[in-house]
């Protein structure tokens, strides 16, 4: 039985006079991959920021697994089960690939305030981190500094950090942004693998329609910050709303 893992109710935020996210109410169920689409500036990333806590909501609620997290800090939300990957690669550039993942393991195991143990002696964390790297096929790069990785490998590492977090809600913000046509499928395969192996909920902001068609169970469309459509991919993509949104016409005319 699937249950609601994440729910936003009347979630709203304004920047000056501009309503970036306009009372979006939506529930995301376990085992479901939801694609969030909409033209640039529709509020997709802002919606993500409200869920993961980078921006405080002006009004409305965010609930994770039935628990209100509207006022929780970013790190609290992460600890409770929100896992977020970022649109622009956002890693620890001068640390090794393994260390990046190990840090996530460390955050989960709450060993961060141990002052006099040697970090290198926490073998189980290292092993868990290596297992995650093997899963995203980055194990052979484990010792490399992140800044020396190719863009594609950095995107893979972004996915790895999320897998390492093992959250209730996986949030991918354009995971293939800036990747070449050859590289993109590798990351998408990782997300497909993840979807097959988890009963959590996955949120995916993506522009490439073919990607969405093959991965998503459900599509929601944001337009000018408001929820414009919600339903199974075939239905939503055929609808006039999406056609119009992507053609750049105003929804009011539809």
């Amino acid at each position: 039985m699937s249950r609601v893992l994440l729910e936003t109710r009347d979630l709203t935020v304004r920047f000056g006079g501009h309503v970036a996210v306009d009372s979006v109410s939506c529930a995301f169920r376990s085992g479901e991959l939801t694609a969030i689409v909409g033209p640039n500036g529709a509020g997709k990333t802002t919606y993500f920021n409200l869920i993961s806590g980078q921006i405080p909501a002006a009004s409305g609620r965010v609930a994770l697994d039935g628990r209100d997290i509207t006022r929780a800090s970013v790190s609290q939300r992460t600890a409770l089960g929100i896992g977020r990957a970022f649109q622009l690669t956002n890693l620890f550039p001068n640390l090794s690939v393994l260390e990046n993942v190990r840090l996530v393991m460390q955050a989960r195991s709450k060993t961060g305030f141990r002052l006099l143990t040697m970090a290198a002696s926490l073998h189980d964390l290292t092993e868990q981190a290596e297992a995650v790297l093997a899963r995203v096929r980055l194990l052979d790069r484990a010792g490399q500094t992140v800044s020396a990785l190719s863009h594609g490998d950095q995107r893979k590492l972004e996915v790895a950090l999320l897998i390492a977090l093992d959250p209730l809600v996986y949030m991918f913000d354009e995971p293939t942004a800036g990747m070449s046509v050859d590289e993109a499928p590798v990351v998408l395969d990782l997300i497909a693998d993840l979807k097959a192996q988890t009963d959590r909920t996955i949120l995916l902001v993506e522009h490439k329609m073919d990607v969405i068609r093959s991965l998503a169970d459900r599509i929601i469309v944001l337009h000018n910050g408001a929820l414009a459509a919600d339903g199974p991919p075939a239905e939503v993509m055929a609808s006039a709303v999406v056609q119009e949104a992507y053609m750049g016409k105003d929804l009011a005319d539809v």
Partner: peptide
């Protein structure tokens, strides 16, 4: 120590350090 590693992570990218918890 684990603490020292977290400090380095924060120095490198405090935004992401917060986001991994």
């Amino acid at each position: 120590s684990p603490f020292g590693r977290v400090l380095q992570a924060i120095r490198e990218n405090d935004f992401r350090a917060e986001a991994v918890g």
